[in-house]
Amino acid sequence: MTTHMPSLTLPTILFQQPAAAILLPVAIGTAIGFSTRPADTQKTYLALRQPPLRPPPWIFGPMWTLLYGLMGYAAHRAWTTGMGSSFDARKVMLTKQGATLYTIQLVLNFIWMPLFFRFQRPIEATVDIVALTGVTGYLTYVWGQVDEVAGWCLAPYLAWLGFATYLSAGAGYLNGWDFGGKERPKAEKGGNTKYVDEKAE
């Protein structure tokens, strides 16, 4: 069982201040999204063979912004609720333990996109997102014992991670776990929204 590890935990102020707690994941997630060059990312996404139910590329930006905001709010709420329960040693312990888990899941979250798109390493990206989903599931359980609202705020994120794991593993499998040399189609006038496997239909 993961315990509180200060060296692997974000500074306290990033949990105490609501604006900092919410803006941190949103800002870093947005920065990583832009650093991987959105146009190239979309072309790669469209060029890969995808499993059924894959969403259109435009949905990921708004979805992740919402989920990052919810996870940031959950972090603030769990921390202030748990650390305010100074007479309940168990809640304080769970709050601190969750803070470490939260920091670990942020790191796992932020490295997925570079692994999948920039470095085109689908095996490593899928291992990463499986680990991320597991850590987030445990985090939801831990912080849910501290504050029920915080747990529910993490529930949509956990559900999306389950779906994202399916997409990551599905794309890896359908493309032979090798994204090297995949066609990067130029967008047609008005935008190209077809996946590579739809173009033959």
Rank of each mutant, 00 (worst) to 15 (best):
G151A: 03
V130I: 15
W143G: 06
W152C: 03
V135C: 02
C153P: 05
C153A: 14
G137V: 06
W160Q: 09
G191N: 08
S168I: 00
A164H: 05
V146C: 01
R184Q: 15
P185C: 00
L154I: 08
A155H: 07
G137F: 01
L161C: 06
E188Y: 10
L167H: 07
L161N: 04
Y141P: 06
G151H: 03
G134V: 10
G191T: 11
A150Y: 07
A169H: 11
D147P: 08
L158P: 09
V130W: 07
W152I: 04
W160M: 09
W177M: 08
L154C: 10
G176L: 03
F163C: 02
T165Y: 00
A150W: 08
A131P: 11
G180P: 05
Y138V: 15
D178P: 13
T165N: 05
Y166M: 01
L174Y: 03
V142T: 14
W143H: 09
F179A: 07
W143E: 12
R184S: 13
W152P: 04
G144I: 02
K189V: 15
D128S: 08
A131F: 14
D178L: 09
G190Y: 02
G162H: 09
L154Q: 09
E148W: 13
T136A: 13
G170W: 00
L139E: 11
W143M: 11
W143S: 04
S168Y: 00
D128G: 04
P156T: 03
T165M: 06
F179N: 08
W177A: 07
G176A: 08
L161S: 05
F179G: 08
G144T: 01
A187W: 13
V130F: 12
D147R: 01
K186D: 15
Q145I: 04
G181W: 12
T133P: 06
L161G: 03
Y138F: 14
A187K: 13
W152R: 11
Q145A: 08
W160L: 01
S168Q: 10
A164L: 03
L154V: 06
L132P: 07
T133H: 06
D178I: 08
L139N: 11
A150V: 06
A159M: 09
A171P: 07
P156S: 01
G137H: 08
W152A: 04
F163W: 10
K189Y: 15
A164P: 09
I129D: 04
G172C: 02
L132N: 10
V149Y: 11
A169P: 13
D128F: 00
W143I: 14
G144K: 00
A150L: 02
G181F: 08
G134Y: 04
G181D: 13
A171I: 11
L167Y: 08
A155E: 12
Y141L: 13
D128L: 02
A131R: 02
T140R: 13
E188H: 13
V142D: 06
